[in-house]
Design a protein around this nucleic acid. Structure first.
Lengths: 182, 182
DNA sequence: GGTTGCAATGCAACTAGTTGCATAGTACGG
DNA sequence: CCGTACTATGCAACTAGTTGCATTGCAACC
């Protein structure tokens, strides 16, 4: 039930509708935890009946009404309680690694193509994180206390994408050494 | 249905019982795709009725009988077909990153403890991969063709764990700079 | 002689997440 | 005026994975 906690964090940062949350989970926090709007509405509904969040229905002109959710006192407690107990170390799960192991039984060229796609994705993501870091945290040595978490998360993203990129480069060097990598 | 493909790869490398597979998914291939024995038996059953694997029941003395599974022709085709089509790039999903973002709303000391646990886990995993690489592939420049995939997977593991370790170190430097890191 | 552990298989109930569909009004481009 | 896109919410059916339990027999340890 980790989505619950991701929602708690997101709502702690700022109250929002399910729709807003869905957009945040497409960007920002969503770089580390994806969720569809269906799943968000479902969990949000459960959280409301649990009492960790509460909503206020806001009528809008020319738009559907919306339900703005915020944390309740019990939600804030739940969030604090979650941070204070250890999160089990998640093991990585990479379909891509499985596929690499399938090299002797499959189509090497297709796998190389796959690596190239993946390499570009890592590059794009890395560029995004790097720019975000430069834009929002131009002086990482003088961070406001409330920004430390976000900065560290960005740093994690950067390190992980760099590792992914380096992996792709090693693979390409091994499997397609003659071709121009770009 | 990625577990299916992981099982196909594992059985392509060597025929096995469900029990054997469960052990492999605790080590080896399991470093990149975990699965419980329950899940394995379930999927194996479905794969048998799909005709991608077939089993032979082997009686044993003083032990329960066992079902040794192997790939069928259709299983080999399915595996090759899977390698030849692109795997969607999986987005990472890190409860830990979410937790970091919860820093302003939670218990900083507990989070630091969590980072230490995580750091040790990355260190252990890195040591395991490094040793495996040294043991099984002492001469990475002269790999047999069938070993290339396994070698690249190990390299990926090493790069990812190094990135995880570096992340933990950055976090600790930021959040607990005075304390001895070891 | 009892407990623990290994080999070997599996069912049942549950939780989490995905995919597909539905609705409804507004705004904007062609 | 027609189609597309955005705001906003949600249900239903399905797939994947987790958790808990059950069985059988042997070997080894204390």
């Amino acid at each position: 039930m980790a989505l619950q906690h991701a929602i708690l964090v997101s709502l702690a940062e700022r109250s929002a509708t399910g729709y807003d949350l869905a957009r945040r989970f497409d960007a920002s926090i969503g770089h580390f935890w994806k969720a569809s709007h269906q799943q968000i509405y479902k969990v949000l509904g459960r959280m409301e009946s649990d009492g960790t969040v509460a909503c206020e229905v806001v009528a809008q002109e020319g738009r559907p009404h919306k339900k703005v959710y915020g944390l309740t006192e019990s939600g804030r407690e739940e969030l604090a309680a979650w941070t204070s107990k250890a999160t089990p170390v998640e093991h990585l799960r990479s379909e891509f690694a499985v596929k690499l192991r399938a090299l002797p039984f499959g189509d090497g060229d297709a796998i190389v193509d796959d690596v190239r796609v993946r390499r570009r994705a890592h590059q794009a993501q890395l560029a995004y994180y790097t720019e975000s870091a430069a834009t929002y945290f131009p002086r990482p040595d003088e961070l406001a206390p409330e920004d430390v978490g976000r900065w560290l998360v960005l740093r994690g993203g950067i390190l992980i994408e760099q590792a992914g990129l380096a992996w792709c480069d090693e693979i390409l060097q091994r499997l397609a050494p003659d071709e121009d990598e770009r």
